[in-house]
Amino acid sequence: MEHTNTKSNGEEINNQLTDVLYEKNNGIAKITINRPEVYNAFRARTVSELIVCFRDAWDDNSIGAVILTGAGEKAFCTGGDQKNKGDDGYDGSGGLNGGIGLEIEALHRTIRAIPKPVIAAVNGYAIGGGHVLHVICDLTIAAESALFGQSGPKVGSYDAGLGTAYLARVVGEKKAREIWYLCEKYTAQEAKEMGLVNKVVPQEELMAASEEMAAKIVEKSPTAIKMLKYSFNADSANIEGISQIAMASLAMFYKTDESAEGMNAFLEKRPVDFKKFRE
C-alpha cells in the first residue's frame, strides 16, 4: 500500500467529517472518534472517515506520529455500534459481497502499514472492536480510569485475526484466550502489567503525555522509524491472511440466529441465551 507524498490542510478535511475530528500540529496528527453519545462506537461512516484521516497523515511528510483517541472522558471506543447492525452486517450492507458492512479490515491494515507510529490515547472504555484498535496501534497510553476488554462472544461477534492472533503476541496465549473467552474488563494498571499498555497517567494528563511521546518520535529519523515499524510488523504479517478468512466467516455468521441473539439481547438489555445453539 503506497501513497503519494502530499501535504494537506487538516482543517479542510475536518470540515468534511461528521464522526471524526482531525488536526495536525508540530508534526503530530491527532485523530479523535467523535461519537461520545454512543461511547465512541463506530458505524460504517466512522470507519471510512478514520481511514481518510490516517491516509492523509500517511501522505503528509510533515507528520511523524499519529495519536488516536476518543471524544470525552468515558470511552476511547466500544467497537461497532449495535444499533447500526442488522442481519446482514452493519448499516445493512453486509453479506458475502459487502463483508460485514464496515471497512474495518482496511482500517486495521492502514494503522499497521502507515510508516509512522500510531499512539492510542485511551481515555475510557476500550472494549470490543475498540479494544482491537488500541491493540494494533504501535503504543498505548491509558488514563487511570480506562477499562479494557472484549465483548464479541457476548454479542454474537468475534475478531479472529489481529484481534486474537496478534493480541496473543502482545500478552501471551493464555492471557489472550482469557480476554476473549471470559469477556471481562481490566483496569489500566492491569493492562500495563500484562504488556497491553505502555504507560498509565491521570485522566487530565493523558493528552499531554501522548503529545510528549509523539513529540519524542517526531524528533527521530523518519526513515529509521519507518523501517523499524516495517520490521516489527514483518513477524506478524501472516496474520492478515487469517484476518481475511475471519472477516469472511464473520459476514456469514452475522446471518445466523445465533449472532442475532447476541445483538438482540444487547439492544433489548436482557440476558443473552445461547443455550439453544448447543443442542
Score class of each variant (00 low, 15 high):
274 F>D: 02
68 L>V: 04
217 I>A: 14
213 M>W: 08
122 V>K: 03
17 L>T: 05
262 G>W: 06
251 A>Y: 04
257 D>R: 15
263 M>V: 15
261 E>Q: 06
269 K>F: 15
155 V>W: 03
137 C>P: 09
241 G>I: 09
27 G>Q: 00
174 K>Y: 10
49 E>F: 02
58 W>T: 02
35 R>G: 10
243 S>C: 05
123 N>W: 00
22 Y>A: 02
26 N>Q: 07
210 S>H: 03
129 G>W: 13
253 F>Y: 15
13 I>Q: 00
271 P>E: 11
167 L>H: 02
149 G>I: 06
105 E>G: 06
60 D>A: 06
139 L>I: 01
172 G>Y: 02
158 Y>I: 01
21 L>H: 07
82 Q>G: 13
111 I>C: 08
272 V>H: 01
176 A>H: 08
146 A>P: 07
35 R>A: 10
206 L>Y: 00
242 I>A: 07
64 G>K: 03
104 I>W: 01
164 T>I: 10
108 H>A: 05
140 T>S: 09
45 R>A: 13
164 T>S: 15
33 I>G: 04
196 L>A: 09
21 L>I: 14
51 I>K: 02
31 I>G: 00
177 R>D: 10
209 A>C: 07
199 K>V: 01
165 A>H: 04
11 E>V: 07
155 V>D: 03
228 L>M: 15
188 A>C: 07
245 I>P: 04
170 V>L: 01
263 M>K: 15
117 P>S: 06
20 V>A: 00
58 W>D: 15
179 I>A: 07
201 V>M: 03
205 E>H: 10
81 D>L: 08
53 C>Q: 03
137 C>T: 08
2 E>H: 13
127 I>W: 02
153 P>I: 15
268 E>S: 13
119 I>S: 07
174 K>N: 12
5 N>A: 14
264 N>H: 13
81 D>S: 02
196 L>G: 04
163 G>T: 00
40 N>V: 11
41 A>Y: 02
